[in-house]
Each structure stands twice: as C-alpha cells, then as structure tokens.
Nucleic acid binder design. Structure first.
Length: 255
DNA sequence: ATGGTGGCCCGGCCA
C-alpha cells in the first residue's frame, strides 16, 4: 500500500500536475494540503473518475486540506470535529484501509515574536488533544502533512541560517516531541539518517537549484504502522519543471 | 543584494 502526502499550494493551480503525479505513482491514499479551495470547488468527480473517494475541508482562499483514498474512506471528520472550526481549515481525517489517516496543515508561525507563532503552538496542542480524544496509538494511525517544523538540524540546509527562526525552535520541536511521546514516529527517520534531504524549497532566489530547503512535510505513523513501512521517499522530481508546488510529495510504502 | 517568486485575485497578504 502506498501512502503519500503533498502540499500542492493551490489545487486549482496544480490540478494538472496532481493528476499527472497520481497517474505516475498511483497512491492508495493521498493527503493534500493548501488546496486553497472552497468545498464546492474541490474536484470530487475528477478524483472519483480515477477510483478515489475523497473528503475536503476548505473555505476558499487560504489553507484547505484533503484526503483521497482508493482503499475505502469511512468516518470522515473535518476540522477538529467541533461545531465551528475556530482553528481554520487545517485538518481532515478518515479511516482508509483500516488506517486512521489525518491530513494536516500546521500554521506557519511566521516569526517567534509574531502572534501567529503562538497560534501555531496552540494549534499543535489542539492537534495533540484531538488525537488523544479520537484515536488510539496502539492502532494504525497516520498523521501526514505540512508541519512547518524541521524535526532536527539535519532537516535544514544550514542550521546557522535558522538561529532565532521559526520552524526550528525548541517549543515547536517539543510540540512534535509530544506527538512522538503519544506514540507516533517520523517514519522518514526509520529508513534514513542522512542530512540534506528536503521537502520544501522557497520559490525565490533559486533556492531549489541551490539546495536550500527544509524537510517539513512529515508522515507520522503509530508503531504498528511504522513497522509495516518498507520505504520512504521524497519525490523531488515533482518540484521540477513547469508550475511546480514549492513542496515535494512524501511517499511511504507499507507492506 | 535585508531582496527574490508564486498563489490568492487586482492591492496587498501569505508563504
């Protein structure tokens, strides 16, 4: 089974690339972030024609998350499942092929002294409480998406360039650590210990071609699921060519 | 080089 996650940076702008990528890789489950679409605009029928059930949570201009599955899609939830989604359209979940799958888009944070940084930490705390309320880490759980956190210094192109910056702060990494303590694992690190492999590169200043990126798109798996993983790859080819997203997809093969 | 590109959609905001 192939599980993938990709911040597409506007599904409207990226639909052709996404369809081409699905045709090439045939993921069984695909989490997407930053669709930047309202639910009514989400191309449910186009994905259904390819054999995918889907759930989308978006209000139009910002954020927006989706989940596609061709191995079943049961008990979908949108947002943190409260009556009003006061946390923005940043999480959607469903049970696919026996796995409780979450597609998440963690707030960027902008800067350590910005109010959005506090919002980012609050959102991560809400994610932790939501997971505790809604699922069991002894079962098959996947939390996939754009975390806007580089788990450690191997995951940024130059740690010195990020001193005092968001995405690498102790508080953000501790929030990720709370998810690990609950029972999730950054499955990339089960299969790779090298530095310098990234999933996001700024569009500006030729960062992609200069190798200036970060690994901030993560697949967190519960132990039972992580033990089934046979490979994890980041498809940097998807960052090349015409009209790419600024993020590359992460793919996890499960036996 | 304290910039730059690209998405939203048309004046800035967001990443």
């Amino acid at each position: 089974m192939l599980l993938a996650t990709w911040n597409v940076n506007s599904l409207t702008a990226r639909m052709e690339r996404v369809l081409g990528w699905i045709d090439e890789h045939h993921p069984d489950i695909l989490c997407m972030q930053e669709t930047k679409q309202a639910d009514a605009a989400f191309p449910t029928a186009a994905f259904a024609a390819l054999g995918y059930e889907s759930v989308h949570h978006g209000d139009g201009r910002w954020n927006g998350v989706a989940l596609l599955s061709r191995v079943g899609l049961e008990r979908p939830t949108r947002g943190f499942a409260s009556v009003e989604d006061e946390y923005g359209c940043r999480i959607v979940a469903a049970t696919c092929g026996g796995i409780r799958v979450h597609s998440v888009y963690v707030p960027n944070g902008r800067a350590l002294d910005h109010e959005q940084y506090g919002y980012k930490l609050a959102w991560l705390a809400r994610l932790a409480s939501f997971l505790t309320e809604s699922c069991d880490p002894s079962a098959d759980v996947a939390v996939c998406g754009d975390f806007n956190i580089a788990p450690d210094d191997r995951d940024v192109w130059d740690p010195a360039a990020f001193v005092g910056a968001t995405h690498v702060s102790e508080a953000e990494r501790q929030a990720l650590g709370a998810l690990f303590a609950w029972g999730l694992e950054d499955v990339w690190r089960r299969h790779h210990d090298e530095d310098g492999v990234f999933s996001w590169w700024d569009y500006r200043a030729g960062d992609f071609h200069q190798g200036r990126g970060m690994r901030i798109d993560l697949v967190l798996l519960s132990r039972s699921l992580a033990e089934r993983s046979t490979s994890v790859t980041i498809d940097r080819n998807a960052r090349k060519g015409k009209k790419p997203s600024d993020h590359a997809p992460v793919l996890v093969e499960l036996g």
